[in-house]
Design a binder for these strands. Structure first.
Lengths: 337, 337
DNA sequence: CTGTTAGCGCTTTCAG
DNA sequence: CTGAAAGCGCTAACAG
């Protein structure tokens, strides 16, 4: 690996001049510039990013902290973030936290020590306080699916979320429109704002109905297996259930699978509606009706906002709320009333 | 952020001493060590990794270049690599190349300039020459699913692969044992060694049968959609097909889906066997019989070997060939002959 | 327009 | 056992 000094020597100029042409900063004579460029090419010189960072430049690296890359939702998110990052010349550091704050803290220290320029939190374990601490240290962050930010703060943490309230509304309306009279809800971990919002919205939507009862709620941990177990418990308690609204697609897929194993037909006996719109929702049998979130778009946007903040372009806290859309598929396809 | 100088000042020692206690190198008096530790704690000092690297230490960062993190196979692989990396104090850089050598080259330059310590190639676009070039520059690499290495070379590129030959053998034997008499093969992109090996092995397994014909082969691009289209074409040409061996699970899932849409029952009319053992293979209906590869194990092993090389522990090229195992599930479950 | 020089924060001899 | 000092490769004033 050749250094800036080698280039300078070969081009017969000082290292400062070489630095100038590399960074396109300050005036450089056209001819000396040519000489330098030629030397750079000849030596196949690539600036050492580590040295550049130490000397004050940005690393051009962002990190995303997420629960688990194996979850299709996060895989798509990661892909979107990575695409946008690369497009802007940034590198992506991947961190799987399993939603454990301990792991997140370790990551944070590592990331800071490596001069990461910004972080996207798609995981919810970390306390808000820690995120503000980051801001204080000059490391911008973007949060996915967090609550609205405390308005007293003046730091700039942007949030990207989707319209959970509306999504749930559509889901429940849809299930009712296909004739469901007793709709249960399989919910996700309540420390996740998305799970909680969907949970609350579900209750708001159905509490006025005579059939509603708290026992129509069952946790499914946002996992396939959790969905399976939840369905079994629900039907044991309420054989009359004819509609299920799951807080995410993974649980809906588990529910679907379990119903099949129990010999209950979907959608004829029980209709199912999921939430997220992951690709998997299209390969089940029947295909899954679900509230589709613009996952890729969320990732792109997160990366874009973060990079703009790093570049100092944007500096105000914004909450972006993206739209969701119900997509009807086989799991609820039965004659409307 | 406090620096080593702040710590030194607070502890009333020189920065060299602080450096010694941080790195646990050289002799330091027990008491001065305590003082330094106290200062470090008080200042919440964390060494700046960038400066450490510039001064000669390793970054403790590895990268994995893969086609697409959204592919469940690679998601699991990435997760395994990340887990092992974190365990050893390494950070993971994620690179999605879409199997395009152009993107890979760009990544390589970036990674080099950032002093990455090692790279895992789970993508196949890059020419072998480029990988040896890396070795020459002192950057160790581990390859996943590549062919055996050219033996004339003396560089140390380890390879991790699985027993494709045996896996295909088991798959075909199994399909035959459940009564399949005309077995088609949906294959993956032939520039991928795994796809090619499975393709060849399939032919070896069946070419002696009277029913065999080249037209029982159809590409599916390792994708769900490809699998769907392949099935349609195959059955148009050969309505007598009663068994399908897909080169990976994604294509098998697509095939399964398409057969359902065509009203053909699985496994009664057509039995299907996939390859990989991704988690998805368990949520289809019926569940997918597949040749299971130890994906997580492959990832762990890759990371482990790479990290050992970086640490200078291992220095010889090895080809690790992991075992595969056929797992029988619903998609082939019908009375044995 | 170009060169000199002082760091960035840390590791590592080399003397004490 | 500990400190002084020389870089690692590059950027950014500051002089010319």
């Amino acid at each position: 690996m050749s250094t800036i000094r080698d280039v300078a020597a070969l081009a017969n100029v000082s290292i400062a001049t070489v630095s100038r042409v590399i960074n396109e900063k300050g005036y450089v004579d056209v001819n000396t510039k040519k000489k330098v460029m030629a030397a750079i090419r000849e030596l196949q010189y690539v600036p050492n990013s580590v040295a550049q960072v130490l000397a004050g430049k940005k690393l051009k690296g962002i990190a995303v902290i997420m629960p688990d890359i194996q979850n299709p939702f996060f895989a798509e998110l990661a892909r979107a973030i990575e695409d946008m990052a690369r497009q802007r010349g940034f590198t992506l550091f991947l961190c799987n936290s399993d939603d454990q704050s301990e792991k997140e803290k370790v990551y944070l220290d590592v990331l800071k020590s490596k001069s990461i320029d910004g972080i996207i939190f798609a995981s919810n374990a970390l306390a808000e306080e820690e995120i503000y601490e980051l801001q204080r240290q000059g490391i911008p962050a973007v949060l996915m699916d967090r609550a609205f930010i405390n308005e007293q703060r003046e730091s700039s943490v942007s949030v990207i979320r989707t319209q959970n309230r509306q999504g749930v509304h559509q889901a429940i309306q849809h299930l009712r429109s296909v004739g469901c009279e007793t709709i249960a809800h399989i919910y996700g971990p309540q420390h996740l704002i998305t799970a909680k919002e969907r949970y609350k919205s579900y209750i708001q939507e159905v509490e006025s109905f005579s059939w509603f009862d708290q026992s129509l709620l069952e946790p499914g941990y946002f996992q396939i297996e959790g969905g399976r177990q939840a369905v079994r418990k629900l039907l044991l308690r309420h054989p009359e259930i004819d509609g299920i609204f799951a807080g995410n697609d993974m649980m809906a897929i588990g529910a679907l699978k379990e119903l099949r194993c129990m010999g209950i037909s979907v959608p004829e006996q029980v209709a199912i509606c999921g939430y997220d719109g992951i690709q998997l929702s299209q390969i089940t049998e029947p295909e899954l009706t679900t509230v589709v979130q613009p996952i890729y778009e969320m990732g792109r946007l997160a990366a874009q906002i973060l990079i703009e903040k790093i570049g100092g372009i944007s500096d105000h806290e914004i909450v972006y709320e993206l739209e969701v859309k119900l997509v009807e598929r086989g799991s609820t396809k039965r004659g409307r009333l």
